[in-house]
Amino acid sequence: MRKSNRAAAGAAAWQAVQHNARPGAPGLGERAAALPRMLMSRLRGRYDGLSVSRLLMFVLGLVYVASPIDLVPELFVPVLGLADDVGVAVWLATSLMGESERYLEWERRDEYVQGHVVG
Rank of each mutant, 00 (worst) to 15 (best):
M1G: 01
M1P: 04
M1R: 04
M1W: 00
M1I: 04
S4T: 01
R6H: 11
G10N: 13
A13M: 06
W14E: 08
V17M: 13
V17H: 01
A21D: 03
R22G: 01
R22V: 10
G24D: 14
A25S: 15
P26I: 05
P26A: 13
P26H: 08
G27M: 03
L28E: 00
G29Y: 00
E30K: 10
E30H: 08
R31S: 04
R31N: 05
R31V: 00
A32N: 08
A32P: 05
L35H: 03
P36Y: 02
P36N: 08
M40E: 12
S41H: 06
R44N: 14
G45A: 02
D48E: 11
G49S: 12
L50E: 07
L50C: 05
S51E: 14
V52K: 10
S53H: 11
L55R: 09
L55I: 00
L60E: 15
L60F: 14
L62G: 14
L62Y: 11
Y64A: 03
A66N: 09
S67W: 04
S67Q: 07
P68V: 07
I69C: 05
I69A: 02
D70Q: 11
P73Q: 09
P73F: 04
P73L: 10
F76N: 11
V77T: 06
P78S: 10
V79Y: 05
V79I: 09
L80Y: 09
L80W: 07
G81F: 08
G81M: 10
L82I: 04
D84L: 04
D85E: 14
G87V: 05
A89V: 06
A89I: 06
W91N: 01
L92I: 03
L92A: 02
T94I: 10
T94C: 14
T94E: 15
G98Y: 03
Y103M: 03
Y103F: 15
L104A: 09
E105G: 10
W106N: 03
E107S: 13
R109E: 15
R109A: 13
D110Q: 13
V117Y: 11
V118E: 14
V118M: 12
G119W: 10
G119V: 04
